[in-house]
């Protein structure tokens, strides 16, 4: 078998194993949150009987191990479960089978939100990744110049400021003083693509400011790190132009660390954007997640956690595989 294929399969299996381990951690962590759904929904004056009844209906009285495997089994068959908060309690007492409409499933609840999050992450990535790479390459090319320093200071200031602060600054300049973009990103299903993009632009720009610094600086550092190599000296002694030396000779050998940083930042775009969502009232998965934690809506919390973990693992896996592919020693064995 080709060694690359072998490594990819190994990484894939390792990724699945990690996901399994993460599912255990999620289950244990979520279930050790203080209080439970029954108490949260019934309030202080609930009778013990009412609490017990809801707990029984939701299966919360089962032992933890049984509940874990039940949940895992459901996940594997694509059944994310039924949200506690959305549940029609009639369904638990056995009358909903005939009611027709049925309870809202977690999947139905998460799907549009997740789609929105991916859209925002996608728009941000399309802006941020090429921009960071270009800035990083230029900074390496003109290192220690005014451009290099300006780019460094600007990106560092951006990454050091709190996200909401950046968001409000952008709103101030691009929505209030110069009303070019809308300050609210209230997108909905069925919105035409152009309109949707227009409304997503401001949060996407905010996130771009947040993630650019790390990717740009890593690109610059990885390239500069290679500039002392004998093969770079050789390229210079062949009379190759400085730009070509960097793009053609240094960059292909600097890809592995750059890819890894890009993957980490893309994962952050999926899992860590709740503050930006709140500022722009963007209906992403982050808000749903926070609300569900507040309500102890365990099925939603668990499903969100699992999706976040999956995104993280998948992106890192892709980064791993791409780094391997960027190494000719592995791509073309002796």
């Amino acid at each position: 078998m080709h060694p690359v294929l072998k490594i990819v399969i190994q990484r894939l299996l390792l990724g699945l194993l990690t996901l399994l381990a993460v599912s255990i951690i999620i289950f244990v962590a979520v279930n050790s949150l203080p209080g439970d759904f029954a108490q949260a929904i019934l309030g202080q004056s609930a009778t013990p009987e009412a609490v017990a009844a809801i707990r029984r209906d939701l299966g919360l009285d089962q032992p933890a191990v049984t509940r874990y495997f039940q949940w895992l089994g459901d996940m594997l068959t694509g059944n994310l479960g039924i949200s506690f908060a959305q549940a029609n309690f009639a369904s638990f007492v056995g009358t909903s089978a005939e009611s027709g409409s049925g309870p809202v499933t977690v999947a139905q609840q998460i799907a549009p939100r997740f789609e929105n999050t991916m859209f925002l992450a996608g728009v941000t990535a399309v802006i941020a990744v090429p921009m960071s790479l270009t800035l990083g390459i230029l900074a390496a090319l003109f290192r220690n110049s005014v451009f290099d320093r300006t780019a460094n200071i600007a990106s560092l200031s951006a990454v050091s400021s709190p996200e909401f602060f950046l968001a409000y600054i952008l709103i101030l300049f691009l929505a209030v003083l110069h009303p070019i973009l809308p300050s609210l990103s209230n997108i909905y299903e069925g919105m035409p693509f152009g309109e949707r993009l227009y409304r997503t632009l401001l949060p996407a720009l905010t996130l771009t400011l947040v993630v650019t610094a790390q990717m740009m600086r890593m690109t610059r550092a990885a390239i500069i790190n290679l500039l002392a190599s004998p093969y770079i000296e050789m390229a210079r002694l062949k009379g190759i132009s400085p730009m070509r030396v960097i793009v053609k000779h240094a960059l292909p050998n600097a890809l592995a660390p750059i890819i890894n940083v890009i993957a980490l930042n893309l994962a952050y775009l999926i899992t860590g954007v709740v503050v930006v969502e709140v500022v722009f009232v963007y209906p992403g998965i982050g808000q749903l997640f926070v609300d569900s934690v507040k309500n102890r809506d365990i099925p939603v919390v668990q499903a969100c956690c699992l999706i976040f973990a999956g995104a993280y693992i998948l992106l890192n896996l892709m980064a791993d595989v791409l780094s391997i592919l960027s190494n000719p020693r592995l791509r073309h064995p002796k």
Partner: peptide, 23 residues
């Protein structure tokens, strides 16, 4: 740059390190 590589060339001590591993 116009002279280097074209009219003046260089052969380095370690060819293994002086060839770019990516090409």
């Amino acid at each position: 740059r116009d002279l280097l590589g074209k009219r003046i060339a260089y052969v380095a001590q370690s060819a293994a390190a002086s060839f770019n591993p990516a090409h």
